[in-house]
Design a protein around this nucleic acid. Structure first.
Lengths: 222, 222
DNA sequence: AGTTTGAAAATTATCTATAATTTTGAAATC
DNA sequence: GATTTCAAAATTATAGATAATTTTCAAACT
């Protein structure tokens, strides 16, 4: 009897809105009007307000008192910030997960990498990528850490969908396989080092701006 | 124009409840009943529910659908988890803050350490300790990272108040001064290494069962 | 023409009321 | 005496309604 989640109404609303924000279906800065959302979901505004608060906690929305809530804007500085937080926390999680990783888990992670190879679009690729990262850190059994990582992945995915570059796919697949090889050899620290570089690399690429030019966004001070 | 804070009602309620949870005034596992809280604050259910959601996002409360919300229980495993997350994130923040730390900021941090020395009770000591940590990482200018660290500090303080050990004070004061010395010498990495050990050390100590013997610590403040 | 003013509309935040669910407690049963 | 049953009370979750604030937009003014 593992049935435990009826998925409460505010959770459902916030999940669907989060998907739209991450996919870019709702643009940064767009207003989220509670009554409009309420009628769309056939609900009242109370569960909608709670859904908004969840989105705010995830960093996907910002609320100004008496002025409503907007989709959070994200600039290049925040992308870099998220990448560095991910690197720090996923490395921590991997170090603890390492001793508990089984052969079966690593095989499943390899399946995820293969699914990334064969993904038809960015969305499918992102799903496979997130599955890989989740699989290798979950055995750390640190719920608070995993929840924080999940939120950061959402922010990362937002950036991924907004500015996607074709060279990402090849690079990440190579990194994923290198991480798996290290883990199979029992070299957790080596895997953690690759993971840290791998995650931070997301924020290290020059990105097309709205004007069409490119701009380096990653300048780590020594 | 400076950022005005009207402090909205749900924020006020959640802040006060958070203080009570952190201080141990409300015990882990205790039910938070929305009607009771509502009448206490002279408010209705709706702002109270939003305050509860805020507490849940901070990890201070857990909500079971249709069963209400309870003060989050915290065991030794979670204390260790929080300590390790703090170490990872505060080190990251300190590395970025390092180049922007001024002499004046370090002096202020030293004031905080002195205030810790002269604190009359645990509560005052905790406030000074948190001030020190906040001062040396704030110049990193990474809002999401700083917010995450703040939440982790709240969880740490909860543990501090529930099971306080007299040897903490001496040890942390020594560490704080070592961190400041390294920063004054421009050795950010050295400071970061001390900080990592310093923060993790909190979760490394064996702990007395925090059932009844911890409450007298709190009788000081009432 | 561009800016300012002010009333109407839209929206947020809160309160009161209602339906649904869970908890409680005592009587009935084994 | 312990357990089960079942109705009453308490509590949660949502809906509907109201007050307060902000936004909009067109007319008046410089």
């Amino acid at each position: 009897m593992a049935k435990e989640k009826p998925e409460t109404l505010p959770v459902r609303i916030s999940r669907i809105l989060a998907e739209r924000i991450i996919s870019g279906q709702i643009e940064p800065g767009a207003r989220l009007r509670q009554d409009h959302v309420a009628v769309e979901f056939g609900a009242s505004h109370v569960p909608v307000r709670e859904a908004f608060q969840r989105l705010e906690a995830q960093g996907l929305a910002v609320s100004e008192p008496r002025r409503g809530v907007r989709v959070a804007a994200f600039d290049l500085r925040e992308v870099r910030e998220v990448a560095e937080m991910r690197a720090a926390l996923e490395v921590l999680a991997l170090r603890h997960a390492g001793p508990h990783l089984t052969r079966a888990m690593l095989d499943e992670a390899e399946d995820a990498t293969r699914a990334g190879d064969n993904s038809p679009d960015v969305r499918a690729w992102e799903e496979a990528n997130r599955r890989f990262h989740r699989l290798i850190v979950t055995p750390c059994a640190m719920p608070r850490l995993l929840a924080a990582i999940d939120d950061l992945h959402a922010a990362s995915a937002r950036f991924l969908f907004s500015a996607w570059r074709s060279d990402w796919e090849a690079r990440t697949d190579h990194d994923h396989r290198a991480i798996l090889a290290a883990l199979r050899a029992g070299q957790v620290e080596e895997a953690a080092a690759i993971l840290a570089r791998h995650v931070q690399w997301i924020g290290s690429k020059p990105v097309r701006t709205a004007a069409g030019g490119t701009r380096d966004i990653f300048a780590i001070q020594g």
